[in-house]
Design a protein around this nucleic acid. Structure first.
Lengths: 296, 296
DNA sequence: CGAATACTTGAGTTAAACTCACGCCATGCC
DNA sequence: GGCATGGCGTGAGTTTAACTCAAGTATTCG
């Protein structure tokens, strides 16, 4: 006995459907169960109430007087619940969602895909905010942040891991010696001026380690304050840069940049993180980001 | 997913209790489950809604704004359901219940116990109706009938079997030769004038068979139209009657009748039968009758 | 700082709910 | 009448949602 004063709510839902549709079988179909299940639930309810709700007459069922009263009661209560529930859901689903991410990611990946995002998730109203790392301090100002970082994640964050990070060297076809370099193995880069992001001095050594090259042999020539400038510099033919694959995917496709040695995974992850749990908008957004990152 | 538009009702009930009491643990206690169970249900609900309902702060929980709205919604809906449900239950529980039974049973068993019944089941308003067998034709006029009959029961009846019937010979201490007879084995009755009920000529042979006596050896002297008259005749010392044990229990206790050879079971049963299913009043009445019959 | 309190969470278990398959009954059609 | 059809009831077996248990975390209080 769940409660002496209140019967099984699931049984009531089954009854309400059966009463509304005038048939156990139709109700069963609506609830995606078999007619036997509905039959049993209704029977349970009748036993709990102490009187029949339907009169069975061979083919079909008809509500008793008591059944009609209970039907009205259930319809009203469940209708109220559903309306209120949907209202609460929609209120938040339609609220704007502020997404923070670094300028580089924003400019080179998010913005080019905004139109597609609007098309795929029309219900989502997205606002964008530039947010350089460390993100932790700014997480309170946004609903979520799209970032590249390595686990473990700070406690209390809600994290949707989207994809492993893959980085690799890129250079412009206009770079002097580009034609020569692209034919050679990765170790040829030891002799080239390497551009690296100031925010991430470990990028080249990480890559070298993954490729089996001695990290010391690399010559980091020029640091640039943002990945965005780094890539612009590389595109301008100033040197060889290193970048996450999705950020250069468009340039690779257009031939503006080359990646002769491909990309390799690091320990970092693309992730959508937020301070608040249980935001359905973010779940949908994470799902979309996951698919979009996997596509390139 | 039970339904896209309506979340788990059980989760809502758990949430409502937790919100009302301001504590998962207290809600768990109210619902007779562990606090872990409530925690999970609330979590399920939060995930379905896509936003948190409580803010957890170490010790204790507090409702979010959304949580407060959902709490009001749930309280209203569940309150409505409970009130309506109880009203439907009570409406029928307080309606008078018409019980039919034979005049003999009524006079010699039911009426002497009416006071006790009123005391044990104060909520039951009982009306009595005399109803001689066959009962089938009259079942429509009463809510239920108390009767003695053998299975199988007609289809469509709701039957509460109460106890096996036990019958045995009874005689008055004033009966000539009572003192002699009571010391002798049952076969001594072969020589006595036996009173039998017109409505049930098989009573004596049935008893004889159960006792291992040849049925033919019995001499049925006098038929009387009702068990009631039969027992009055026996009490007046006119002969030896045969009767169900409960109907003479009071007379045996007072010494007005003797049953020197005890009682033995027949294939018949005391039963409370009705045409309607699922009447909580009858379930309670059957339970009381069962206990009362077992007591003698 | 340790004890106490309250929620969370992962693993394993249980009881409710479901499916399946068959039976029954009424209706309608040949 | 005989037979097919549609709908409900029910017993047996199985699935699954919900639960318990136990360990973990965070906060408060003496």
């Amino acid at each position: 006995m769940p409660d002496r004063d209140l019967p099984s709510l699931n049984a009531m839902r089954a009854f309400e459907a059966a009463a509304r549709l005038g048939s156990m079988s139709l109700a069963a179909h609506e609830l995606h169960v078999t007619h036997g299940a509905v039959s049993r639930q209704v029977r349970t309810l009748e036993e709990a109430l102490g009187q029949p709700l339907f009169t069975r007459q061979g083919r079909g069922v008809v509500l008793t007087t008591t059944g009609q009263q209970l039907r009205e009661l259930c319809s009203a209560a469940f209708g109220q619940l559903r309306d209120g529930w949907l209202q609460l859901r929609n209120a938040q689903a339609s609220a704007a969602c502020v997404l923070g991410c670094s300028g580089s990611v924003l400019a080179r990946w998010v913005i080019p895909r905004l139109e597609r995002l609007r098309h795929d998730l029309p219900a989502l109203t997205l606002h964008l905010a530039v947010q350089e790392e460390p993100v932790a301090d700014h997480l309170a100002n946004v609903d979520a942040a799209l970032l590249l970082a390595a686990p473990p994640w700070p406690a209390g964050w809600q994290v949707h891991e989207l994809a492993p990070e893959r980085i690799g060297p890129v250079l412009s076809p206009r770079y002097p010696g580009a034609d020569r370099l692209r034919e050679q193995p990765a170790c040829a880069l030891c002799d080239e001026p390497l551009l690296h992001p100031a925010s991430r001095p470990q990028a080249w050594p990480e890559w070298a380690r993954a490729m089996g090259l001695p990290a010391e042999s690399l010559r980091q020539a020029q640091a640039l304050p943002h990945l965005y400038f780094l890539l612009e510099a590389a595109a301008a033919g100033l040197g060889v840069a290193i970048a996450p694959q999705p950020l250069v995917a468009d340039d690779l496709a257009s031939g503006r940049l080359l990646a002769p040695w491909g990309f390799c995974e690091t320990s970092a992850r693309w992730a959508l993180v937020s301070a608040r749990r249980d935001d359905a908008r973010l779940a949908a957004l994470a799902d979309w980001l996951h698919r979009e990152l996997a596509e390139t």
